[in-house]
């Protein structure tokens, strides 16, 4: 089994090459996932780069990204495989003139050409390197989770008519969850667990610099400091990394060279999406300057 990464540092370095800044924890867990051949379950607040991690991994390892977006009501037919019913029907119709026995037809229509692969099966049967992303796994019902178990632990799918299809290789598997419900123990047991939180000041500054290359060092630092200050307030929804990046871009377009309370007041809606949060942050950060 060829491993993708030699060391934790290599993980971090290669992710950095594709503009994803991982800290030691993220790097360590990804490295282990590669070595132990286990899926990674990534949890954390919205917008801290959970999905981005999978995308970055696919870029870093030159692998195709196969994405299964979960939603309520997702079923086998959408996640694993489906028989191409129309094609099967055509086949039977076309056969009508010839006298073929029932068992021949049956053997024929439940064969590979009539199989529609869905993301999970596709990932298993892939010959080229792939990264499988199972996004927002907390959205499926707890019963549906069971669908994933066989894939996650043994990387195989059992199709009654065809038998068990075993994966040719072990791709990196990333599951993300926004923690809207408790995932089942069975699922968690099969995964490595990674909790991603808002980055610390230095990392956030670096992220801004990498994602908004035109920004100068000074401004990036200020952006990170203001965002941290806002996150310390008690808000309904703290600004996410993507919002920080949006904000940095906004500031750049406005031609701001230095962050003043007025600028914050005018652009706060980029960072915060609730009126009450904006009002609160404005009260905390902006009028303080009116006094001086």
């Amino acid at each position: 089994m060829a491993t993708r990464f030699e060391s934790v540092d290599e993980v971090i370095a290669r992710l950095r090459d594709v503009d994803y800044l991982a800290d030691a924890t993220i790097g360590g867990v990804v490295y282990l996932a590669d070595r132990l051949e286990k899926p990674v379950l990534v949890e954390g607040p919205a917008g801290v780069g959970k999905t981005e991690l999978a995308k970055a991994l696919s870029r870093a390892t030159d692998a195709r990204l196969i994405r299964l977006q979960c939603y309520e009501g997702l079923d086998e037919a959408k996640a694993l495989y489906e028989w191409n019913y129309k094609k099967q029907l055509l086949r039977i119709q076309a056969d009508r003139e010839h006298e073929t026995s029932w068992s021949d037809v049956e053997a024929d229509i439940f064969a590979e050409p009539f199989l529609l692969t869905r993301p999970l099966l596709e990932a298993i049967r892939a010959d080229d390197p792939v990264v499988l992303l199972i996004d927002e796994v907390d959205r499926v019902e707890i019963e549906t989770e069971a669908l994933l178990l066989e894939v996650l632990s043994d990387f195989q799918v059992s199709i009654p008519e065809l038998g068990t299809i075993v994966g040719k290789q072990r791709p990196l598997v990333v599951l993300t969850s926004n923690n809207t419900r408790e995932l089942s123990e069975a699922l968690k047991r099969r995964c490595l667990y990674l909790h991603v939180d808002y980055p610390d000041l230095e990392r956030e500054k670096d992220i801004v610099r990498v994602r908004v290359p035109e920004i100068d060092d000074e401004l990036a630092g200020q952006v990170a400091r203001v965002v941290r200050s806002i996150r310390d307030l008690e808000l309904k929804k703290a600004p996410s990394i993507s919002e920080t990046i949006d904000w940095a871009r906004t500031l750049l377009y406005l031609g701001t060279s230095e962050i003043s309370p007025e600028v914050i007041g005018e652009t706060l809606h980029v960072l915060l999406k609730y009126q009450s949060d904006i009002a609160k942050a404005r009260k905390e950060l902006v009028p303080a300057s009116d006094a001086t």
Binding site: T25, V29, Y31, K188, Y193
Partner: peptide, 19 residues
């Protein structure tokens, strides 16, 4: 993992034991 690297060692234990 490299046992001397405390952060990575911790990440390894955390990822496997704490869900």
């Amino acid at each position: 993992v490299d046992l001397a690297d405390r952060d990575v060692f911790k990440a390894a234990l955390g990822a496997t034991l704490v869900k």
